[in-house]
Design a protein around this nucleic acid. Structure first.
Length: 564
RNA sequence: GUGCCUGUAGCUCAGCUGGAUAGAGCAACGGACUUCUAAUCCGUAGGCCGGGGGUUCGAAUCCCUUCAGGCACGCCA
């Protein structure tokens, strides 16, 4: 639960703040106001561990050149009880801070103490947050878009858990409304076609063309025969939907589970109709003057809340729209179930939903900042060097099941989390399948397996992996060792940033960096066979690296193999 | 036409709240296995940060404009 970097940053910030006070008190600097002292981490090692640009920001107020201000501040700094060794003015007026190496050795002690919990922080304070993701129509199978949304949503949820939030993963089941109608009509058409021939009935223009619909009906006929031919059509469609829908849902559930995703709640849209919550919501909006009638339909005045246009919530045939259910659904999330923060994941093709959903949340009296909608860009699939166009209409998309079979869960989850959600993702199927160095997931897993192998060998020779407190960590001085420890120290802060940005893709990059620094260390330094104290110190470092890699892969739900 | 996303090395992408000399992986080229896993490492090369303006001590980052690609603009979800 220790964020090392954050603590150090705090030390630096306080040092600067105190120096600023002291300088003003002594009359060396004019009084000034500054919102916040920003402490940044320079990318160049020669610039120390931390730096601040305060002297440049202050230049105008104190009417002094930044370099001069920096010098005054440095002269007034007190480093006692901190890890800071020295501060230097550099460049146009930066102040760079150089730390005493002991912070690195203390880092290894923290990792050793926290073990599986290393990296966990508590910025969430147990706040209740829901992450709703995938929520695919149960009328068909899962496709590449769902696969990206799934990997992203699940990892966002895990990162938030690691950051101290109380997280609920939820799948919204669209088991009501228009698309279920279409589902029924499609099933019915296939049912009749299978029994009476292709030409017996025309397949509806906007029906679901997928093979799975036909398969469902083949199975149904096998079990129950043709008795539904004589049935009233509405009743017939209902029976077919009642048969196929649970099967689809079960298949979706199993597919996602194989992908490493387990939901806490499967929430039924129909339940909002049955419980009366949908009607209540419509009534609430109506009573608050947020509904207008036009052309026989009822519209929600989304424009009142900054949206571009109003939205139909009840059609002129009297049926509520999907959007109406979604308002009731969010009312349920916030008000019935008391979530403090709700995160919805949406594919870019639904980004039009963002503005109206925000408006709707405000309309039901909830602070819209409590709703975050993460819009992720669509996936372009490459195969044999060409774009493999996926078409939902013809049902020829690559399914999640295909993906898991061809690519595997680890590679798929890793690749989907290498890109920021906002960037378009090219998924190279051939590369993903390849078990070679071109495929980044193996690079990380290999580092882990390599460490496990080293530790196994050492232990087989009767040497115990020592505790960090028992060894001379100051023996670790090689640049490869220092860089690796620094990277390990960053982990808790990396969790913090990933959680705040809702970007787990940072973690795949982070863990790749750890692996890379480890491999460099491995090639530069030997462990087994070294002088005993050095070997022990390195064993602690190697073991810490293993812990960090394992912890990150756990968050991403990617396997950490002990052998490869 | 309007709105949103994206434009950074040959390819795929990082670049946090504006900071110091723009990074990584892959591909290319040259090296390293009698020693803890070579699915590895070390090195070389590769750039008008789409273009043009502006804001300021300082811009890949912020603002305006323009070009290119993706997506969305329904009483579908």
């Amino acid at each position: 639960m220790t964020n090392i970097i954050e603590n150090l940053r705090g030390q630096v910030r306080n040092t600067v703040k105190n120096a600023l006070h002291a300088s003003v008190l002594k009359g060396e600097l004019a009084e000034s106001t500054i919102d916040e002292i920003t402490i940044e981490t320079p990318k160049d090692n020669n610039h120390g561990e931390f730096s601040t640009n305060i002297a440049m920001q202050l230049a105008k107020q104190v009417k002094k050149a930044p370099v001069q201000t920096a010098a005054i501040l440095i002269a007034n700094m007190d480093f006692s009880d901190t890890y800071i060794e020295r501060a230097e003015s550099a460049g146009p007026g930066f102040i760079n801070f150089y730390l005493n190496k002991s912070w690195l050795y203390d880092t290894l002690k923290i990792v050793d103490r926290e073990r599986n919990d290393y990296g966990r922080i508590d910025i969430g304070h147990g706040k209740k947050v829901m992450v709703e993701f995938v929520s695919a129509n149960p009328t068909g199978t899962l496709h590449m878009g769902n696969a990206r949304g799934g990997a992203l949503g699940d990892c966002i949820a895990s990162v938030l858990q690691a950051a101290g939030y109380d997280v609920t993963r939820e799948f919204y089941v669209n088991d009501a409304g228009n698309q279920i109608e279409k589902f029924g009509i499609s099933l019915e058409a296939r049912y009749i076609q299978l029994l009476k021939g292709e030409d017996a009935v025309q397949f509806p223009e906007d029906g679901y063309q997928g093979e799975d619909i036909i398969d469902h009906m083949k199975d149904y006929i096998e079990r129950y025969g043709d008795q539904l031919l004589k049935e009233d059509p509405a009743e017939r469609r209902k029976k077919l939907v009642d048969y196929a829908l649970p099967k689809n849902l079960e298949r979706i559930r199993k597919g996602l589970e194989a992908y490493g995703i387990k939901y806490d709640v499967w929430f039924s849209e129909q339940s909002l109709h049955d419980s009366g919550e949908l009607d209540e919501t419509l009534q609430y909006l109506n009573e608050n003057g947020l509904v207008v009638e036009k052309d026989g339909a009822k519209w929600f005045k989304a424009t009142h809340f900054g949206a571009e246009k109003d939205e139909v919530i009840v059609r002129n045939n009297g049926l509520p729209t999907y959007f109406a259910s979604d308002i009731a659904y969010h009312r349920n999330k916030f008000q019935k179930r008391g979530f403090d923060w709700v995160i919805d994941l949406l594919g870019a093709d639904h980004h039009g939903h963002v503005a109206r959903m925000k408006a709707a949340v405000e309309a039901i009296g909830v602070d819209p900042s409590k709703l975050d909608i993460v819009v992720f860009q669509l996936v372009r699939l490459f195969k044999d060097g060409d774009v493999a166009r996926m078409s939902k209409r013809t049902g020829r998309a690559i399914s999640l099941d295909d993906l898991l079979e061809d690519v595997g869960r680890d590679a798929a989850r890793f690749i989907f989390n290498t890109k920021a959600s906002g960037s378009h993702l090219d998924f190279d199927l051939d590369l993903a399948i390849k078990q070679s160095n071109e495929n980044p997931v193996y690079y990380v897993q290999y580092a882990h397996a390599r460490i496990c192998s080293m530790l196994r060998l050492i232990e087989s020779e009767g040497i115990k992996i020592p505790l960090a407190d028992e060894v001379e960590l100051t023996r670790l001085t090689a640049p490869e060792e220092i860089e690796l420890i620094k990277k390990i120290a960053e982990y808790p802060d990396e969790i913090r940033i990933s959680a705040q940005a809702l970007e787990p893709s940072r973690l795949t990059r982070y863990v790749t960096d750890v692996a890379s620094l480890f491999h460099s260390f491995y090639n530069a330094c030997r462990v087994k066979g070294e002088e005993e104290n050095l070997m022990k110190a390195r064993l602690v470092l190697v073991s810490s690296t293993q812990i960090v890699i394992k912890n990150v892969l756990d968050i991403l739900s990617i396997g950490a193999p002990e052998r490869m």
